[in-house]
C-alpha cells in the first residue's frame, strides 16, 4: 500500500446505497455511523451497497449504476444475495457487522488484495448510430434528434415566459437520492422547468419512518438538520424546532405549492410532519395526477412536492398519471425516430 492508500484507509468508507423495497430499517441510520459516508452520487463511492432485494424490473438500472462507480470498487449485498452478474460481490452474512465488513472490503481494495469489480455492461452506445438528417442525428439542423438513442435538446415552446429554451427528455431514478426509492420518472425539462412528466415506475410501497421530513429538509438546503431527525425523538426537542423556524423554512416554501383538491399543500404537509414526522397527512387524491402537480414547476419545487407525500399517496397519484407505455404507443403512431431507447442518461 502506498502512502496515499494508507491515508485513504483511515477515512470513512464512501458508499452509495441502491435500496430495494425490503431494505432494512437500519438503512437510514447508516448516516449515523462514523465509519461510513453515504454519498449522493455513485461517482464519489468506493462501494455499492445493495440493501434488500431489488425487483426484477430494476436489475438493469443496478447494472448501469454499478458501472458508474470509479475503480477501485466493490459491490456488497446486504439482506439479499448476489445475483448474476455480481458473482464476485460480498454478501453480508447473518450476524456480521456491516460497517466492519465494508471497512475490510475497502482495505482489501486499496491494498490490492481484492480486484476491483469489472464493468457489467459493454462500454458502447446503447443504440446504433442512426444516420438521419444533415448531421446524422435526426432532428432539425444541428439540434434535436436521438443520436445513439440519446435524445438531444431541441428548442420548444416554453410554458412559462415565452422564452424558447431547449427541451430535453430523460429518465430519472430509481436510485437518485432526491426521489423516493424505486421511483422512475420520465421528465421533459426546459432548463430547470418540468414541462412534461410520465411514470416509468412508482416508488416502493414501504413506509420508511420519517422519510418525508428528512427529504424535505435536505431539499431545502438543511442536510445537517435533516440528519438530526435520525436521532431518537429529535422532533420533540425545542432547540431543534427553534433552529428549523429560524432557518426561514416557512418563507422558503411557496404558498399553494403542490396543492391537492382538499386544500392541502407542501407548506401544510411540512408543518404537519414537523409536529408528527411518523404519520404524514393523507390528503384527498382522487383524480390528481403528477402532471397537475409538477408541470410548470422548477426542479427544486418539483422535488419538494414529490417528497411531501408518503409513498402510499405517491403510488395513488402515479396510478392516475400517464405511464411511459401510454406515451410510447402514441409516439409510434406519429412515426419518426423518437421511439428509441431513451435509457441510461438520467444519472443514477
Amino acid at each position: 500500500m502506498n502512502w496515499i492508500a494508507k491515508l485513504a484507509a483511515k477515512a470513512p468508507v464512501p458508499i452509495f446505497i441502491a435500496r430495494g423495497p425490503d431494505a432494512p430499517d437500519e438503512t437510514d441510520r447508516l448516516h449515523l455511523n462514523p465509519a461510513l459516508t453515504i454519498v449522493d452520487t455513485p461517482r464519489a463511492a468506493s462501494i455499492l451497497l445493495v440493501a434488500g432485494t431489488l425487483p426484477h424490473a430494476l436489475k438493469m438500472y443496478l447494472h448501469r449504476l454499478h458501472d458508474q462507480l470509479p475503480h477501485p470498487r466493490a459491490t456488497v449485498f446486504w439482506h439479499s444475495s448476489p445475483t448474476e452478474p455480481f458473482s464476485n460481490a460480498v454478501e453480508i452474512a447473518h450476524g456480521d457487522d456491516l460497517a466492519s465488513v465494508l471497512l475490510r472490503t475497502r482495505a482489501a481494495l486499496l491494498g490490492g488484495e481484492r480486484a476491483s469489480d469489472a464493468d457489467v455492461l459493454p462500454d458502447e452506445p446503447a443504440n446504433e448510430w442512426q444516420g438521419v438528417g444533415p448531421h446524422g442525428q435526426g432532428g432539425k439542423g444541428m439540434m434535436g434528434g436521438t443520436p445513439y438513442g440519446r435524445p438531444m435538446a431541441m428548442t420548444d415552446d416554453d410554458i412559462r415566459d415565452g422564452l424558447k429554451l431547449d427541451a430535453y427528455t430523460a429518465e430519472f431514478g430509481p436510485f437518485l437520492p432526491m426521489l423516493p426509492a424505486g421511483m422512475i420518472l420520465k421528465l421533459t425539462l426546459q432548463g430547470d422547468i418540468i414541462q412534461d412528466v410520465a411514470v416509468v415506475s412508482p416508488p416502493y410501497e414501504d413506509a420508511r419512518k420519517g422519510r418525508e421530513i428528512r427529504a424535505l429538509l435536505r431539499l431545502l438546503g438543511l442536510p445537517t438538520l435533516a440528519n438530526r431527525m435520525l436521532v431518537e425523538n429529535a422532533h420533540r426537542d425545542a432547540g431543534f424546532k427553534r433552529l428549523v423556524t429560524l432557518s426561514g423554512v416557512r418563507m422558503a416554501i411557496p404558498p399553494d405549492l403542490g396543492r391537492t383538491h382538499d386544500g392541502s399543500d407542501v407548506r401544510s404537509r411540512f408543518e404537519h410532519l414537523l409536529k408528527d414526522p411518523f404519520s404524514p397527512q393523507k390528503p384527498h387524491l382522487t383524480g390528481l395526477d403528477l402532471g397537475d402537480l409538477l408541470e410548470g414547476r422548477e426542479w427544486q419545487e418539483a422535488m419538494l412536492i414529490l417528497n411531501s407525500f408518503d409513498n402510499v399517496s405517491l403510488r395513488k397519484i402515479c396510478a392516475n398519471t400517464r405511464t411511459n407505455a401510454d406515451e410510447d404507443s402514441s409516439e409510434q403512431t406519429s412515426g419518426g425516430h423518437e421511439n428509441m431507447d431513451h435509457s441510461a442518461h438520467g444519472g443514477h
Binding site: A5, A8, K10, A11, T224, N227, R228, L230, L243
Partner: peptide, 23 residues
Amino acid sequence: LSGHGTVGLLAPFHASAVYLTQQ
C-alpha cells in the same frame, strides 16, 4: 447541529486521499 458525527483534525487529509485513490 446534527448531534452526531466525529471531528478529526486529520479527517480532511484522509477524505482527500480517498478521492486521489479513485479513478
